[in-house]
Design a protein around this nucleic acid. Structure first.
Length: 873
RNA sequence: GCCGCUGUGGCGGAAUUGGUAGACGCGUUGGACUUAAAAUCCAAUUCGAUGACAAAUCGAGUGCCGGUUCGAGCCCGGCCAGCGGUACCA
């Protein structure tokens, strides 16, 4: 083995690491600790795609570098293995999901090992393992005990095709996120978690987190805090309402109490409980028809039809508490039943939606905030002095709000109120492959099991389908369902928990995966506390990350953990797209430009347009666009998402086969910034593969397989030391900042330079290998061994920068005239502070002199060591 | 619409604090080695102009328009485009 052959060295070192438990986490860490975590994968049947190794390589580099820097590192991996695909496969084929899961886990694990990640595999967790989910159930009991888990009959998103209820977050555009099946609303008895109780804390906690701004913004948006007031509107008594159980008043929520004088009508959601009692006889038929219609609309229809406002008058009136005037009460589906009180005061003068509705139904519009003179729109939502508003007149919005809320509270007809968009978490699913609830029902009343009765193990069932009625598959395990509780007959809860449950706390289990007295060992918790760095996809910005924060805060309040947030720093890796593709378009046999195509499609979405894939050599760049050489039309140049149907999927196994794991790792890190979306380039992989070949030949003579004769035990020269230490500094800083692409660039610069050296001092070579090792661990181990070391490089201390070597004798200084560089001068480092000498030197530079002579020197600016600028007129 | 992010060569991207724009890699071109090819190595490569060649010099240039500054890819104001999220949340 003389030339660089990744297939041989990679399997060799993977076997070595396994045999020596090289990456075992110290049980009793000394010195600083570092917990670096990947979002654990759902082990799907299709195996790893190239997106997985991106984040995993980044965390692995951090883990390896931190170990070398003397940290005790916790770097584990596991499986988020409950979930729909295995269950649907079971429904189709009858294969037990446990079997599918076991096989998929084995496949994933071997693929991860193939990439050389330094996980401590002795800490592997699997959410479907009864010894894991017993603690998921235990945490549920904690939630129950603290009043945070309850049952409710709620309208839920029922998906007939999947046979289950979905959380709001799992419904996208009215269809299921998984599979794209239609979803309808239907009331069912469900388990709920009171996440709303933690809304304020979940919001506040974000401020202290080192997370992407976009993710924090999404969570803030999701929690949706609004500060305002509740206002009670009395119902005007009339003889002709049709019900006797009359509501005496209706409460609305508003963020604009300052506009109360402009509230000219009121709107209830069709689901509002007071609707029945308000309808007058002449309005009843119309109103009931409308309510019926609204109830039957799916979410999708409600969204599609939302362009036009619809509604119906109830016949009843409410009294505006500040004007004492009666205002009509309407029903409309633009008011949501589940937000606020399900009723609003409509202020068409200052609210776009109310304005549209008022226009459509000819309701009075009153402006109570003075818009600027040039304002032309309908509703004015900006600031201005209050008008037509009695005691508020002249006040601006914020002042008027306070004054009105004070008045409402004095009158006892309203109160300050904070409202959240966040709703309680629908926590049950009618599925088989999930955690059973530790709950039994005695005479219809839920009873929590004792922690000693855990785990409640998933029973075997004949088939995995839910019943027609929507009963969960577990209901079919009749022997299991029938049980006793404290001597009484009882039936078990047959719902299971959603997939999010297991991932809400897995990062805690890694700290003490075999602990039997609780979800985690308090001693281990005291050591690791929280995740220092968490890397995973942005698609989990809200769901997983919000739910995990919620559970963590509950566990904090319960005294189980000592920190209030689970993930200190969070980074999302960007998606990897397919290779750049050029597409030309043809319409009726004629080549058309991309722009033309868009125009045609806009007028006629059905138009038949042929997309023709072009090779790179058939296109050229002209101006801003790429042009098809043969026809001269602009083509589309785009990297597309990888997909089977497009045929642009890159399989990591193939890349490893051809170039090795080190090249795949290195390439994925070299592509660009971690967080960024980036197109794949197979040529790029070849580039880093060539780099590793150069590294190999820098130290190994590929004729003989021996160490290069240039390698010797000599003292490094000044220049060699400088380059080495520059590289150490750059690589160390860049790893810390997760700038892997520029760290690799620094390694390349080193090798390019060192290739030209007659001798390569051994100490320099060794330290370079140390720097390379987190990125390309296999080749680094092999070179380290060949350099004569017996112990793995993984435990070799990280090279330290010696600043003394970074100092140069001479620096090149740019000399500008009027901000343009006109020449450079060499200045001895010692002389840099001597402004007069530097200026003299600069003025003598021939090209600079030319410009100085052409005008009058009016100003000299010198930033020592940086730049010199002459201003000439 | 609203929120967030991003616009730099033929391509992926550097420029960490306002101080020589284009590091590093890909591609391309030329050369060396070779009977030849592969592999490898060396050199050039933002665009344009001047230059026989070269050295060199000049002009333009970081999505667009304007501003601040001795100096702007970076700061400020106004746009445009793309990506992601969200959408009657009162």
């Amino acid at each position: 083995m003389n030339t660089y052959d990744p297939s041989k060295i990679e399997s060799k070192w993977q076997a070595y690491w396994d045999a020596h438990e090289t990456f075992k986490t110290p049980e009793k860490p000394e010195g600083p600790t570092y917990y670096v975590l990947d979002m654990f994968p759902y082990p799907s049947g299709s195996g790893l795609h190239v997106g997985h190794p991106e984040g995993y390589t980044a965390t692995d580099i951090i883990a390896r570098a931190k170990r070398a820097q003397g940290y005790s590192v916790l770097h584990p991996m596991g499986w988020d293995a409950f979930g729909l695909p295995a269950e649907q496969y079971a429904i189709k084929t009858g294969t037990h999901p446990e079997k599918t899961t076991r096989e998929n886990v084995a496949k994933f694990k071997s693929q991860l090992k193939m990439l050389g990640f330094s996980y401590d595999w002795t800490r592997e967790v699997n959410t479907t393992d009864p010894e894991y989910y017993r603690w998921t159930q235990w945490i549920f009991l904690k939630l129950y005990e603290r009043g945070l888990a309850y049952q409710a009959e709620v309208p839920v998103n029922w998906c007939p095709a999947l046979g289950t209820v979905l959380a709001n977050e799992e419904v996208v555009d009215g269809v299921s996120e998984v599979g794209g099946h239609p979803v309808i609303r239907r009331p069912m008895r469900q388990w709920m978690l009171r996440i709303t109780e933690y809304a304020e804390q979940l919001l506040d906690g974000l401020d202290e987190l080192d997370w992407p701004e976009s993710t924090k913004a999404m969570q803030r948006n999701w929690i949706g805090k609004s500060v305002g007031a509740e206002i009670d509107f009395a119902i005007q008594s009339t003889q002709n309402t049709n019900s006797s159980d009359s509501h005496s008043h209706i409460t609305v929520f508003t963020t604009r109490p300052d506009t109360l004088f402009g509230a000219t009508y009121m709107v209830l959601a069709p689901e509002h409980p007071a609707v029945d009692s308000l309808l007058t006889q002449d309005q009843e038929a119309d109103a009931r028809a409308y309510i019926e219609q609204a109830a039957n609309k799916s979410d999708l229809e409600r969204q599609e039809l939302s362009k036009v406002k619809t509604g119906v008058f109830t016949g009843a009136f409410a009294i505006n508490p500040v004007t004492d005037q009666p205002i009509p009460i309407w029903i409309a589906d633009y008011v949501l039943g589940h937000y606020g009180t399900g009723a609003i005061m409509a202020v068409p003068g200052q609210d776009e939606r109310d304005y549209e509705f008022a226009k459509a139904f000819d309701l009075p519009i009153l402006r109570t905030v003075q818009p600027p003179a040039d304002f032309e729109g309908g509703a004015y939502t900006g600031d201005g002095p209050a008008i037509e508003s009695g005691f508020l007149n002249g006040m601006h919005i914020s002042e008027a709000k306070e004054a009105m809320m004070d008045w409402l509270e004095e009158q006892k007809t309203g109160r300050r109120k904070t409202q959240y968009k966040l709703r309680d978490w629908l926590f049950s699913r009618q599925r088989y492959w999930g955690e059973p609830f530790p709950i039994v029902h005695v005479d219809g009343k839920p009873e929590p099991l004792s922690p000693d009765d855990l785990p409640v193990i998933l029973p075997e069932v004949e088939d995995y389908k839910p019943s027609e009625k929507g009963e969960p598959p577990l209901a079919k395990a009749t022997d299991w369902v029938k049980t006793t509780f404290q001597g009484q007959e009882a039936i078990r809860e047959t719902n299971t928990m959603p997939q999010w449950a297991g991932s809400c706390w897995y990062y805690l289990r890694y700290m003490s995966p075999n602990y039997t007295k609780g979800p985690l060992d308090p001693e281990a918790e005291a050591i690791w506390k929280q995740v220092d760095l968490y890397i995973g996809g942005a698609e989990h910005s809200v769901l997983h990350l919000l739910y995990a924060r919620f559970w963590h805060k509950v566990l904090f309040d319960a005294g189980v953990v000592s920190t209030s947030e689970p993930f200190k720093k969070l980074v999302h890796q960007g998606m990897i797209l397919g290779e750049l593709e050029f597409t030309a378009f043809r319409h009726n046999g004629e080549w058309i430009s991309k722009k033309k195509r868009d125009e045609i499609l806009e007028n006629d979405p059905e138009a038949s347009i042929e997309a023709v894939r072009c090779e790179e050599e058939d296109v050229e760049k002209r101006g801003d666009a790429f042009v098809h050489k043969a026809s001269g039309v602009a083509v589309e140049a785009k990297a597309h998402k990888m997909s089977k149907s497009r045929g642009n999927v890159i399989n990591p196994d193939d890349v490893v086969d051809r170039y090795g794991a080190d090249s795949l790792r290195l390439y994925e890190m070299f592509m660009g910034p971690l967080e960024q979306v980036k197109p794949w380039s197979t040529k790029g992989v070849e580039g880093v593969y060539r780099f590793l070949g150069r590294v190999w030949r820098l130290m190994i003579d590929d004729q003989t397989g021996q160490l290069q004769s240039s390698l010797s035990d000599v003292e490094p020269t000044k220049a060699q030391n400088r380059l080495l230490h520059q590289t150490i500094q750059k690589v160390t800083d860049d790893i810390e900042g997760l700038r892997m692409n520029t760290a690799i660039s620094a390694l390349m610069i080193f090798v390019n330079e060192a290739n030209g050296w007659e001798t390569l001092p051994r100490t320099v070579a060794e330290r370079f290998v140390c720097l390379l090792h987190p990125f390309a661990p296999h080749i680094a181990e092999e070179l380290w061994e060949r350099l004569g070391h017996e112990k793995s490089i993984s435990h070799t201390p990280w090279p330290v920068v010696d600043e003394a070597f970074l100092v140069e004798d001479e620096v090149t200084l740019a000399v500008q005239v009027n901000g343009k560089v006109r020449g450079t001068i060499e200045v001895a480092t010692a002389q840099l502070e001597d402004q007069a000498a530097v200026l003299t030197l600069a003025k003598d530079e021939p090209n600079v002199k030319k410009y100085l002579d052409a005008g009058t020197l009016v100003k000299e600016i010198y930033v020592p060591g940086r730049v010199l600028n002459f201003v000439v007129k």
